[in-house]
Amino acid sequence: MTNRLDAVVSSIVEGVRNALREHDVTFEEYRKGFKFMMDVAEAKELPLLMDLFLNTTIVEIQNRQAQGSPSDLEGPYFRSDVPLVTDKIKTMPEFGGTPLVLRGHVKDTDGNPVEGATIFVWSSTPDGKYSGFHDNIPVDYYRGKLLSGAGGAYSVESTVPVPYQIKNNGPTGALLEAMGRHSWRPAHVHYKIRKDGYKDLTTQAYFEGGEWVGDDCCEGKLTDDFVIAETVEDGKHVMDIDFVIERAA
């Protein structure tokens, strides 16, 4: 029987070895890389580094086998301990922000509405922070969970998020700079949809024409399915998305 762990690890190691051979990496460069990994561990940035370079690859593999809506990055800021909301997610007036309506339907792969699905929604503040992680912003702001209702419909109001930089003052940011890359993510809204008997769907939605869309430092936006054209109704921006979830095996 094939040892899957040995097969995967051996392939990863051989891939790294081939890169070292291809570029004639010197011992001094190797030691600098070794020290960099120690710095990443000391700065507690290993999850950031892994997500930055590898998360989208796992999502691509998952999407190849998916029958429902495409997945996207979850990112490091998901929280399950969020309030149940109905019509509006709590925001902070002092932060300002443009009202944003998130609405649509949840369906199964046969096109049938799925009622009672839990939809987790979270996004940045109007200045690019995340509640429950940054500046002591309480976890019940700029995030929540709602239930799909009759016909699988959902609707909730929040504010328009903004592009922001991932942590760039540590070794990961220094690596990006040395590589000649930037550390910006486009404005986006996160979704995670759960329903008993169905596979979880974790994805993101983006704003058509938004800065850094198509040039995400984390290589998000794997498809254009959830790049949404700007629509404004009664002074509120609208992100209208239907999600398709598939039954668990």
Rank of each mutant, 00 (worst) to 15 (best):
T57K: 13
A41R: 14
K129T: 03
D72T: 07
T91E: 06
P126T: 06
K107E: 10
D72N: 11
L102G: 07
M92T: 12
G151V: 15
S158H: 05
V40L: 10
M38G: 12
P93L: 06
P76F: 07
K35Y: 03
E42R: 08
N63P: 12
P138K: 04
Y130S: 00
A117L: 05
S131K: 00
G68C: 09
E74F: 04
N112I: 03
G128H: 10
A117Y: 08
L46K: 13
T98G: 01
N63M: 09
G151Y: 09
F36Y: 14
L147C: 02
L48A: 13
N55T: 15
V156I: 08
V85Q: 01
D108C: 07
H134Y: 04
T57N: 09
F95A: 07
Y142W: 13
D140H: 14
G149M: 06
R103Q: 14
L100C: 07
A150G: 11
F78L: 13
N63T: 13
P83D: 10
D39P: 13
N112P: 03
Q65P: 00
Y130K: 01
E42N: 10
P126E: 09
F120C: 06
Q67A: 11
D87Q: 09
L102E: 06
V114D: 12
G144L: 01
L146W: 01
R143L: 10
P83I: 13
V139W: 02
Y77P: 00
G116S: 08
W122M: 10
D135G: 02
V82Y: 03
D127K: 09
L48M: 14
G104F: 13
F36R: 14
S71H: 10
V85Y: 00
